[in-house]
Design a protein around this nucleic acid. Structure first.
Lengths: 236, 236
DNA sequence: GTGCTCGCTTGATTTTTGTCAAGCCGCCAG
DNA sequence: CTGGCGGCTTGACAAAAATCAAGCGAGCAC
């Protein structure tokens, strides 16, 4: 089942921000120890608390990061191609704080954590990329915390819709990429409340039909949502 | 007002995890560009959205990191000596996501961000320390998010009390280091609800008198709080 | 087709949390 | 001492969110 990554995957991985500045021979070191694997949907890749043996790179498909406590569970983030996850656990050699499961059929590269750490120590370009990526991750979580603590669930949903619209290229119609129950969990609410929240946004020109979102009035929605780059712009 | 750090401060800064592995001459570079300053209480040091010119190091006193949106405000973290803040904005050269204000009279070192970035590129020991520190920060925020999303406010308070107890060396009696209103904000609740939550923990053996916390029954409190290292252990 | 599952929705209800208003109390200036 | 201020608490109430229960409807096995 486990295979060395073929040439075609190399290019995908190499094109990641994390690997653009790495020296060729160091990239080769990482890839020599790496495995690529195809997973079916709904497979638990890692469990929180486990020790961290591999940095994961999602080449295709998508992965849900989630956490549990006392019988409750919450979705923390969705990882889409091409990006990495659990970089922090990798560099700290600490246990995972989140579990991960495939949402759909996914192709994933596993790079041994100790290789990542040793290349970090000898390749300044890679070191800079790791620190930039980590800072990016940190800032994303901080933004998420601000979203959770400063906004009501209706405001979170409104801003989520605006962010997804931006990701979809600004179109007034776009698709939700996963189940509504997962969206509810990500936004910190119950599926029932998400249903009601969709209705609550109708007065601001939002229509939801199945997994299709339609924004009838951009200005009304934005006036209500009050998006802020220091919360909603995930690129900085 | 602005002064180069005197020798006595050097030792404090040098002893930070961030600077133990840095080469002497690189540490000197950072300190040559640095300023040390004493601030009175309640001074806003940085405002979210500002560009990041300095890495901040708290030598004494304490600093509150907080964020605002749409007229609301929430406390994100408290920084105590000796540690740094806004490392992520520094390495990314991106705008601050949080504002910072002194809680009490505080002594703070300001290290120019560009010096931090340039030393990062030439000093592998420092680079490793930066990435470790950032990973630590990231993991702390993830834990905080899990706390917020998986627990009720009463459970958050119970676990907060247990964490503070640990910080205080495990004693059954210890002091809250700041105002209750700030604790309420940090825990994501109103001051009124915090008051009621204190009462709600009385059946589990928690007594609050002024800023004094007394744990009458460790086991009852722990049975209710269900602390978990993947949320409550800030050292890993 | 029928019957089933599963995710989503809806309504009724309870629980939790926030808001508003008032009062208490320690602290400090005058 | 006295008065005022600010933080904390309390109670009554309103809003938000979770829970419970039922029903809908698309997809699928048979």
């Amino acid at each position: 089942m486990r295979l060395r990554p073929p040439e075609s995957d190399f290019q995908n991985i190499r094109s990641l921000d994390l690997f653009t500045e790495i020296a060729d021979q160091h990239f080769d070191v990482l890839m020599r120890g790496a495995y690529v694997q195809n997973f079916p949907p709904q497979i638990e890749l890692i469990a929180e608390g486990d020790t961290c043996d591999f940095l994961h790179v999602v080449l295709s498909g998508s992965v849900d990061l989630f956490s549990s406590w006392n019988g409750r569970e919450t979705s923390m983030a969705t990882v889409r191609p091409v990006s990495t996850f659990i970089l922090a656990a990798t560099v700290k050699d600490a246990p995972y704080l989140m579990s991960a499961r495939t949402l759909e059929k996914s192709r994933i590269v596993l790079v041994p954590s100790k290789d990542v750490r040793s290349v970090f120590d000898i390749d300044p370009g890679f070191a800079r990329a790791v620190v930039t990526e980590l800072a990016q991750c940190y800032r994303s979580v901080v933004k998420n915390t601000k979203d959770l603590k400063l906004r009501t669930s209706l405001e979170r949903l409104a801003n989520y819709i605006l962010r997804q619209q931006r990701r979809a290229g600004g179109a007034t119609t776009f698709e939700l990429q996963f189940e509504k129950r997962r969206l509810a969990s990500f936004l910190g609410m119950t599926p029932e409340n998400l249903s009601r929240a969709f209705k609550g946004l109708q007065p601001y020109g939002v229509r939801v039909e199945g997994s299709q979102f339609v924004i009838l009035s951009q200005s009304d929605l934005e006036r209500f949502a009050k998006p802020n780059p220091l919360i909603d712009d995930y690129s900085t």
